[in-house]
Computed example of a mutant assay.
Amino acid sequence: MHSTRTTAAVLAVCGAAALALAAAPAQAASGSVHLYKIYYNSPGTDTRSASSLNAEYVQIKNTTTRNVSLRGWSVTDASAHKYTFPAFTLGAGKTVTIHTGKGTNTAANRYWGSGNYIWNNDRDTATLKNFVGTRIGACSYNSTSSSYKIC
């Protein structure tokens, strides 16, 4: 009888452990791909130089535990300026910065390619949409007391 009780207890513990392990991947996969930060007022005078344009940017963060393809995803402002990702994968736990100006795209930095500023210095809204056009999120600011907004 003692071994039957021991076996039942071991099976109960193993069953509970198996259920916990089965639930772990779903919990680990939680998180999101979302707008993280907008730096809307680049430092200094607005000269439209490459360094000034590229000091204005929006960041997208992947807080999931998996890589996410952003191909076809887009970021727009309230005036309908639009950046669309070409083939691009955002790594698990990574952030990508989309600079307003021109530059060489990397895994961490992308370039809108604009010769004009995108983000208004006082108020604007960034909207992130996935490849089918579903709104993933938006981030608005209405302030001249700061140069950036954490979304």
Rank of each mutant, 00 (worst) to 15 (best):
I60L: 14
K61G: 08
K61I: 02
N62R: 01
N62G: 09
T63V: 07
T63A: 03
T63C: 01
T63Y: 05
T63Q: 00
T63P: 01
T64H: 01
T64D: 02
T65S: 15
T65W: 10
R66L: 07
R66A: 13
R66C: 04
R66K: 14
N67W: 10
N67K: 12
V68C: 11
V68Q: 12
S69L: 04
S69K: 12
S69T: 08
L70S: 06
L70A: 10
R71H: 12
W73F: 07
W73T: 00
W73A: 02
S74D: 11
V75C: 05
T76P: 09
T76K: 10
T76W: 03
T76M: 01
D77N: 11
D77V: 10
A78H: 03
A78V: 15
A78G: 14
A78C: 13
A78S: 15
S79A: 15
S79C: 14
A80T: 11
A80R: 13
A80I: 13
A80L: 15
H81G: 07
K82V: 15
F85G: 00
F85W: 11
A87K: 11
A87L: 14
F88P: 01
F88H: 05
F88C: 04
T89K: 05
T89Q: 06
T89R: 05
L90W: 03
L90N: 02
L90Y: 06
L90V: 04
A92K: 11
A92V: 07
A92R: 08
A92Q: 09
A92G: 14
G93I: 02
K94D: 10
K94H: 11
K94Y: 08
K94G: 09
K94S: 10
K94V: 04
T95L: 14
V96R: 03
V96E: 05
V96L: 07
V96C: 08
T97V: 13
T97W: 11
I98W: 04
I98V: 15
H99K: 13
T100V: 12
T100A: 14
T100W: 05
G101E: 03
G101C: 05
G101K: 07
K102A: 14
K102F: 14
G103L: 06
G103K: 04
G103S: 06
G103A: 09
G103M: 02
T104C: 09
N105F: 11
N105L: 11
N105P: 08
T106C: 12
T106E: 01
A107Q: 09
A107S: 13
A107Y: 06
